[in-house]
Design a protein around this nucleic acid. Structure first.
Lengths: 85, 85
DNA sequence: TGACTAAGAGCTTCTTAGCTT
DNA sequence: AAGCTAAGAAGCTCTTAGTCA
């Protein structure tokens, strides 16, 4: 998928979708939270995944919604063993 | 902790920390990603947690770094059973 | 066709100077 | 002290117009 096409599918004005996406990808400008959410939806990635710098946690975020109900409950049972402060 | 104090600890100019934080909390203005990261660091919350609208996944994100090494590996083993596309 | 960039119009936030509880 | 707001200064992005491979 081209930069331009991704922007168009995220709802950008088609006439400026190409430079806009390029400015984001090259780090010249930064998309706001709403724009990030739209791009993630098009790409099928959870927004939280982008804001995660722990590789292990990133794997969990990316796949949590794809595991079965039983496995989700097993994971929740594990994290719920943590003592709340 | 006061709004002002939180902003100061995140590195804002003390003379404008109070209105800035208030504008964020009341939704008048929106902090950029760098600012969000600093505020999360002060609050001890993973940034990914804020960008998560799935309550179950939010619990996992909030506590993943607090479970023991053995349990982290158990969780990773579960999510790694998902077939990659 | 697709990736990329400069420059300015337009829009947003940050700061100042307050008021209110 | 803490929460909150208006309004302008300061800063950023979005659009236009274009180049390069």
């Amino acid at each position: 998928m081209s930069q331009k096409q991704l922007g168009i599918e995220a709802g950008f004005d088609p006439s400026s979708a190409s430079p806009r996406m390029n400015q984001y990808e090259k780090g010249k400008h930064h998309p706001d939270a709403t724009t990030v959410a739209k791009l993630c939806e098009v790409l099928g990635v959870p927004v939280a995944y982008l804001y995660c710098d722990d590789d292990d946690l990133a794997r969990v975020i990316a796949n949590f919604s794809k595991v079965g109900e039983k496995d989700r409950k097993r994971i929740l049972a594990i994290v719920d063993t943590v003592k709340q402060s």
